[in-house]
């Protein structure tokens, strides 16, 4: 099978206006992937499915990933000559920039006909708040149907062109996207007879919050723990 770079070049030759980039996987698995621009993702997906050399007729897995905003500190070292004529100094200038966050959908494509794969395709949204639309690949591979619904449910990526985009796992009235990294789960850690350290930490946080609320409240509460509901 072609390498990701070869495939990228072939796709760029076929779709000159498309955005296609190779993403290297630094891990031990070394399965590199292709980053597709959202605009032509559907056409490229159809090409990948129908191309006689690739015939990626089977989309195995769709993973949603949340990449929140990251603060990155760039350190630039520059040599400043000493005006007094002494040895030049090395000055470090630190700039903090915020790398914008985005949501990502990763598709694992295989060929059942030719028994090769995977070709990993990634689509990224512009940000995590308002521009969260990606083209749905369900019309190309039906196996994406439930998986894209799940990503819509848990991550909040809106797949345009999906035939039936509803929440898959949580109820319709739910508003959050719980698999996002900044999701805050409901506080129901009133009482935790448990060996999980992390649960005990949360239970303590709950008790502290309730105690603080009770202290701040003008009217004394009879049963402070049950008033949290």
């Amino acid at each position: 099978m072609e390498t990701v770079e070869q495939l990228r070049d072939r796709l760029l030759a076929r779709f000159p206006s498309a955005a296609v980039a190779a993403v290297t996987n630094p891990g031990a698995a070394a399965e590199h992937s292709l980053l597709l621009g959202a605009a032509q993702a559907r056409e490229i997906a159809e090409f990948l499915r129908d191309d006689p050399v690739l015939r990626l007729d089977y989309c195995s897995n769709v993973t949603g990933i949340d990449w929140p905003e990251k603060e990155i500190t760039d350190t630039v070292k520059s040599t400043v000559p000493d005006p007094a004529g002494g040895p030049s100094k090395v000055v470090e200038t630190k700039t903090v920039r915020v790398e914008p966050g985005y949501l990502e959908a990763v598709y694992f494509l295989y060929s059942m006909a030719l028994k090769h794969g995977p070709v990993i395709v990634r689509l990224r949204t512009a940000n995590r708040t308002d521009a969260v639309t990606l083209p749905s690949l369900t019309p190309v591979w039906r196996s994406c149907d439930f998986q894209e619904r799940e990503i819509f449910d848990l991550f909040g990526i809106v797949f345009s062109g999906h035939p039936d985009l509803r929440r898959l796992l949580l109820w319709d009235e739910f508003v959050d996207h719980p698999m996002r990294k900044d999701y805050v789960e409901p506080d129901d850690y009133e009482w935790e007879p448990t060996a999980h350290d992390e649960v005990l930490v949360r239970a303590k946080a709950h008790q502290a919050a309730v105690a603080a609320a009770a202290a701040a409240a003008p009217v004394p509460v009879v049963n402070p723990t049950s008033s949290a509901s």
Binding site: N25, P26, A28, A30
Partner: peptide, 10 residues
Amino acid sequence: RPKAGEAYGR
């Protein structure tokens, strides 16, 4: 602590 990267095993 695997080094940064990803893997899909099936």
